[in-house]
Design a protein around this nucleic acid. Structure first.
Lengths: 145, 145
DNA sequence: GTAGGTGCAAATCGTTTGCTGATTC
DNA sequence: GAATCAGCAAACGATTTGCACCTAC
């Protein structure tokens, strides 16, 4: 994975290109998304931003995250029964492993998964544009309890 | 796939076992879920039930679908940005192919996908309890336009 | 007869939007 | 200085819930 600073600079550059402003609140959101491994929810980003900027509103976090999603700089993992989660490190579709107990989400590195889109496209005639590969389970930490 | 009547009888039996009643509205929902290939939304089920029972309310459909989901007799495909979709034929997790244009959802039969849970479990130490494998693309019909 | 179901309306919850005043460039 | 952004509150849309009446068993 690219290091945090590089990714942060990348996102900043993309925003500037598009003529967007870099407010302190927005910078805080970018920093969290560039550095976090745990695929935070908007609410979690909000709580962390509030430490430095207590006046920040939830709507502002939503607006920045939505903007980044539309720019393709953040991957949204939507859940119909829970808050959506966001990945600013690898903003393209990739497999995830989700703990049903602690809700932790980690990236899943399994070589055979990367060829799936082509296999599916060939065997179905669909033009594959995206994918969502989630495995739900109990993580080793939660199993121990 | 089991034929519609068999699946319908199965669901009816499971409800009876649990002491649930078979009202006309509920029967209509069961029939739709047992027979439909297209993974209908609650709203779509509602529209079809209303043809025969115009007094039916949306809440009733929701309650029946929720009951069946909790019993494990229906698979819920949740979408954070759209209505959830339901599969009463194969109520266990399996891969789907989703057309991003017409929203059609079809089952995806690719042999290599079925071994994935074990592979993931072994390589990660997680105890896999479920999965969600969705491929998004443009179906052949929509590509033609 | 009674537990469970229906229909209606109100509540919920994550997310989005409209607007006004503030701020970045 | 002007366009964009922040903050607030209200709106949204899918789903859930509370409750009074009804009906399958």
């Amino acid at each position: 994975m690219a290091d945090t600073q590089t990714r942060l600079d990348e996102m900043i550059a993309r925003l500037r290109e598009r003529g967007h402003r870099l407010t302190p609140q927005r910078m805080a959101v970018l920093r969290i998304l560039a550095s976090s491994e745990e695929h935070p929810s908007v609410e979690q980003i909000y709580e962390r931003v509030k430490v430095d900027f207590p006046m920040t509103s939830l709507a502002t976090i939503y607006k920045t995250v939505t903007l980044l999603r539309e720019m393709g700089e953040v991957l949204e993992l939507g859940f119909s029964d829970d808050s959506n989660r966001y990945d600013g490190n690898k903003p393209y579709p990739h497999p995830h492993l989700i703990c049903v107990k602690c809700k932790k989400i980690v990236d899943l590195e399994v070589a055979s998964l990367s060829e799936l889109p082509q296999v599916v496209a060939q065997s179905t005639g669909y033009q594959i544009v995206s994918q969502r590969l989630d495995f739900f389970g109990v993580c080793p930490q939660c199993r121990g309890k």
